[in-house]
Nucleic acid binder design. Structure first.
Length: 268
DNA sequence: CCCGTGCCCTGGCGGC
DNA sequence: TGCCGCCAGGGCACGG
């Protein structure tokens, strides 16, 4: 569930709390969430110099490596004093401040990976990541879309095409741009691409400024809840009147994803 | 290359 | 009340 605004909120929350701390040990309780072998040995002793974000990926900049962390659906970080291990806590980083950074993930979908600092942008997953909407130019995005027949919503969920959007913010972007999520990419005009980039940029920026959205079980860091869920126009609004035309919002499936759409405003 | 499907996971919910 | 099956979904592997 965390998309760009939620991940950015996590980054901003964690950075001042973790900057310059040393990872003195790591406990891994669920091996499958750690891709790198010898993770514990390699990360031990490294400082957290910085925390960056690319799309929905968090990048902890250490001394020799970066730790790439993807929260997927329900991954969360907590910082706290020593205590008994909690349910669904899969990785615990011991810090030199006698605090613990713990990673909590009910569905165990999140992943950790260590890659050397000198090459992490040149190898997957980050080498394959598309540009974020704010950095996208309409000409090259239009070129990426124009030969595809998949629905525009699926293309905007594909992080190789454009990075940072997930199910919530794609629905909001398409609503604002008045484009139907099922519209095939090869029917999208250059002008619509310009509009999509603008609305995606705006919605992500607005959501980030409000700390992201807190829906379902997601919240950024313990005690930090977003406010953008109050600004949603279509997502989760099934049967509620469209703000623009009063037509009830409907819920459909697009590529297997629950999708909210105004059947009047959003034309195919 | 392009696209669709299934997998990974678990808690929560609807149905009986 | 209890149990079963289904759903949610980001990213990737795999197959046609």
């Amino acid at each position: 569930m965390p998309e760009l605004p939620e991940v950015e909120t996590v980054r901003q929350t964690l950075l001042p709390l973790l900057k310059n701390k040393v990872i003195v040990d790591v406990d891994i309780y669920w091996d499958n969430c750690v891709i790198t072998k010898d993770f514990k040995h390699k990360i031990t002793g490294q400082h957290i110099q910085d925390i960056l974000r690319y799309g929905k990926y968090l990048v902890f900049v250490l001394d020799e490596d970066v730790m790439i962390s993807h929260l997927r659906m329900e991954g969360k970080y907590y910082i706290h004093q020593p205590r008994k291990k909690a349910h669904h806590e899969h990785v615990v980083f011991h810090l030199n401040s006698d605090e613990y950074l713990t990673y909590h993930d009910t569905r165990k979908f999140g992943k950790f990976e260590l890659i050397s600092k000198s090459m992490y942008l040149e190898v997957p997953p980050l080498s394959l990541l598309g540009k974020e909407p704010k950095d996208s130019d309409s000409r090259s995005l239009y070129q990426k879309l124009t030969h595809k027949r998949i629905p525009i919503k699926m293309a905007f969920l594909d992080q190789h095409i454009i990075a940072g959007l997930g199910n919530i913010y794609v629905d909001e972007t398409l609503y604002r741009a008045k484009i139907h999520p099922l519209k095939p990419c090869d029917k999208i005009t250059q002008k619509e691409v310009v509009s999509l980039i603008k609305h995606a940029t705006d919605v992500l920026e607005h959501a980030t400024s409000l700390g992201g959205s807190t829906i379902r079980t997601y919240h950024a860091v313990h005690g930090v809840d977003g406010k953008f869920q109050n600004e949603l126009k279509v997502h989760t609004k099934k049967d509620e009147p469209c703000e623009r035309c009063q037509t009830p919002i409907i819920k459909i499936k697009v590529g297997g994803r629950g999708t909210y759409v105004c059947p009047t405003c959003q034309k195919q």
